[in-house]
Simulated assay, not measured.
Amino acid sequence: MTTRLMIRPTTPADQPLLERLWLLFRHDMSEISGALPDPSGQFRRERLDAAFTDPGWRGLVAHLEADGGAPAPVGFALVRGLDGPARVLSSFFVVRGARRDGVGRRLAAHALASFPGRWEIAFQDANVPAVRFWRGVATDAVGQAWTEEHRAVPGRPDLPPDTWICFTTATPTPA
């Protein structure tokens, strides 16, 4: 089977799609965070909403097309801080059926290339696949020119600190 990954910026028309993917993302993360849905079955979604309303945020959506069939949505990346000194990968998700085939690495690389400059990416040490993944993404992007530090989660002294990887991607030179 031949597959093709397509990644593009989100538009307002993508909001219903991202709302559905968001539930999958938050459900996956609930294993690490312990977060539970509210009485309506929804998880917190401030970051998702900001991606469609805040000018300093952008989203990317990934689709996988197999053998000319209809493209299937397989993930998203939400980036904030585009109006500040550092871009922050606020949320990142790839559906389980598309993992382990390089989709996540390609989506992450696309996000980094789309918004060159200073980057900060957080993850939780308890999420072992994320630890390996984000260290690999940073190394792919900048070799060993990245740092890692632990930062307390604001307003949540009950949680272990997040791990943050920081690096700077080069701005492409004009042709």
Rank of each mutant, 00 (worst) to 15 (best):
M1G: 15
R4L: 15
R4V: 15
R4P: 07
L5C: 06
M6F: 11
I7S: 08
R8Y: 11
T10M: 07
T11P: 01
T11W: 11
P12S: 05
A13I: 09
D14Y: 00
D14N: 01
Q15N: 02
Q15C: 02
L18N: 07
L18T: 03
W22H: 01
L23S: 10
L24H: 05
H27T: 15
M29T: 03
E31C: 05
S33F: 02
G34V: 15
G34M: 14
P39F: 11
P39V: 15
P39E: 14
S40P: 04
S40H: 09
S40L: 09
S40D: 10
G41T: 09
G41K: 15
F43P: 01
R44C: 08
R44F: 14
R45I: 01
E46R: 13
R47E: 13
A50V: 00
A50S: 12
A51V: 10
F52T: 09
T53I: 11
T53E: 13
R58A: 15
G59K: 05
L60A: 00
L60P: 00
A62N: 05
A66K: 15
G68S: 11
G69S: 13
A70E: 15
P71Q: 14
P71Y: 12
A72L: 14
A72I: 08
P73C: 06
P73N: 08
P73Y: 01
V74C: 12
V74L: 03
F76S: 00
L78E: 03
R80C: 05
G81P: 12
D83I: 04
D83C: 08
G84K: 13
P85E: 10
A86C: 07
R87D: 13
V88K: 06
S90A: 15
S91H: 13
F92T: 09
F93Q: 00
G97H: 08
G97S: 15
G97I: 02
A98P: 03
R100G: 06
R100K: 05
D101P: 01
G102D: 12
R105C: 05
R106Y: 09
A109Y: 00
H110M: 03
H110W: 11
H110V: 05
L112H: 00
A113N: 06
A113L: 12
A113Y: 01
G117T: 01
G117C: 04
G117A: 01
R118H: 10
A122V: 10
D125Q: 15
D125F: 07
D125W: 11
N127V: 07
V128E: 12
V131S: 09
W134L: 04
G136I: 07
V137D: 04
A138N: 01
A138W: 00
D140R: 04
D140N: 04
A141C: 07
V142S: 00
G143P: 08
W146V: 04
E148S: 14
E149C: 05
R151D: 10
R151C: 12
A152H: 05
G155P: 01
G155K: 06
G155H: 05
R156N: 04
P160M: 07
P160S: 14
D162K: 11
D162T: 10
T163R: 13
I165N: 04
C166H: 01
T169E: 04
T169C: 05
T171G: 03
A175P: 13
A175V: 14
